[in-house]
Structures are given as structure tokens and as C-alpha cells.
Amino acid sequence: MRPTSSIISLDQVSIGYGTGRKDKKLVQNLDLTVSERQLIVLVGPNGVGKSTLLRTIAGLQKPLCGSIQLFNKPTNNLNPKMLAHYVSVVLTSQIDTGYVTASELIAMGRLPHTGWLGTFSSLDRQKVSSAVKQTKVDHLLDKPVYQLSDGERQKIMIARALAQDTPIMILDEPTTHLDITNQMNIIQLLRSLVKTQNKCIILATHNIELALQVSDRMWLMHHGTMEDGTPEDLVLNGALAQAMSTDLAPFNPERGTFQVQHSSTYPIVLKGTGIRAHWTQRALERAGYYVQNEGAVAVEIADEDDWLIYHNNQFIRSVDSIGSLLYQLSQLYSSSSLSHPDV
């Protein structure tokens, strides 16, 4: 049933690492086929073998058994140079390289395309400059790599992979250690590469909420198994919740987020709607209250920037921030006999 024009195909592949006599198998008998140029996001808990899978697909590590084909060519028949024409990688390992400047690092992407001494042709120069343009790193080019911030370095590494000019790009946790702006920049960049450059990109991440929003396809690794599908399908069939939820933070399929469970001991009534009500409820839940319809204490979201506190339908006071609301509520609960029977 495999399409004839597959980009990546894994046939009964087991991955892991051999330690002499004993092989440590992480995932066995994996069958996967990629035939569209998509953004594929690989998720799964720590230690399930995400990096091992990525390295195996990239040909940096041999599968324990089974065969991997890139563009219908088995990878074990490809020499490193040919492999480097198909796949470029951005790995998790820190790279720190003395006097190498950002532009020299990006230029290294052309290594598989140049001759003995690595002399550049006009095509090489053109590929490097278009990689620079797409990643918008012109201002960094003269800086030594060790002076770059994590986000800048990651962009340079991606630019290097782009300069390598391969149809497949594999990135292992490219957004780890990055702030939210840089994460979004990188993800947007990768999405646009899939669309405009017709690349097939596989990336591993722990940011499932982001993955759900941006991926065309999700590979979910969990306890030696692999679920493959559109992210929405994996949410609806419960696979994602099953793989990634914990008692402390179960997956909320409605919001697509993991929600921290708070131990709620105090009942409270919340009246009002809108964004202020939403964030008030979150603050109350975190502080140990649970919102219900009937109860002795009530909080009303007033029209102005105020919160009104009621006790047995009697107005107590109004406060002007969630911070002082929580403070007043704690005073109220500790001064009266309001403590919950459970406590």
C-alpha cells in the first residue's frame, strides 16, 4: 500500500542503541510513510526515543533492524555525502566553536556540495545568501558564534541547514530554551519553509500546545508505541491524553492544554462573564477555591474595574484587583467559621 513516491519510509524499523550483547530497543517494528511535504511534529515523554528516531531517520545512527528509505533509496546504500543531499539536521547538542562566525557556520551547510577544499561556486553563495534572507539573520553574520544568544544561535543553525538545501529537514527540539517570541519566530519560519520552499520538516518538541496549533501531522511516541495522525485526530481519539496526561496535569481536550490540578477546599460563588471572570476563576482555583452555583461567599465581577465580595448575600466590600480579592477572601475565611467541613 506504500505510495510509489514516498519521501521517507520506515519498514519494520526497530530503533535503540546496541550495548554490546544487549540491544536496548526503544521502539520496535515501526512502519511509517511520509509522502507529502508537511510539518511533522514528534512528541512524547522524555526518554521514549524521539532523538534516537530522528537520528535514525537522518542516517546518523543505524536502526537495530528494518530498513529506512529516503526517496525510495535505502539509506544504508547511501554514502554520507549523498545522504547529506537529502537530509539536514539541527540537533540538541550545544555547538561552540571558537572563532567561527555566524556566516562561516551558515556556509558550512554547503560542505556536501563543494569539492576537496570547499571552494564556493556562485550557486553555493546564492544558496547561503537566500538562507540568510529567509531566516533574517543578516545583522548577526560577522559575530562569533559564542557571542550569540540561544535564539540567535538556533536561527543560525537553521540557516545552516537551509543552506544545505535538502528536501528533508530534521530538527530536534529547536525551540527548547527559547522565549515565547523566539519560539514563535522559529515555528513560523519552519511553517513558511514547508509552504514556500516545499520542504518536509520533522521536528521534536515538548511544547504540545504549540505542536497542536502548527503541525500538519503528529507522531506521538509513548511506551514503545507510535501513534501517527493529524493532531486533531489524536486529540479526539484520546491518544494524546493517554500518552501525555499525568495526574498532576491532565490534558484538557477542549482547550488543547494541560491543566494543573489544584486541590480545592473552599467553595465559592462567582458571578459574571467575560475575560475578567475567566482569569478570576483561574486565580481562585489556584488559591484553593472551587467555583459552584450556591454558597455562602460570592464574588461578583462589577461593571467597573472592581470585584464585589458578598457573604450570605450581604455586601462586604469591593476590591480593585485580583490580588487584593484573594487577600480579602483569605481574611474572610480565616476570621469566620467558614472553613470547609473537610478541613
Binding site: 547538542s93 558550512m108 551547510g109 563543494t114 570547499g118
Partner: peptide
Amino acid sequence: KNLNGLLLGERYAQSMGIP
């Protein structure tokens, strides 16, 4: 050229076609 590739570590060198 191979030595330059090794500057990024062996895995990167390999991924850039260095035998």
C-alpha cells in the same frame, strides 16, 4: 574541509556528508 566539518562535532560533520 573535513577538519572544518568536525568543528561542529562528529554528528553534525556526518550530517554534512563528512565521512
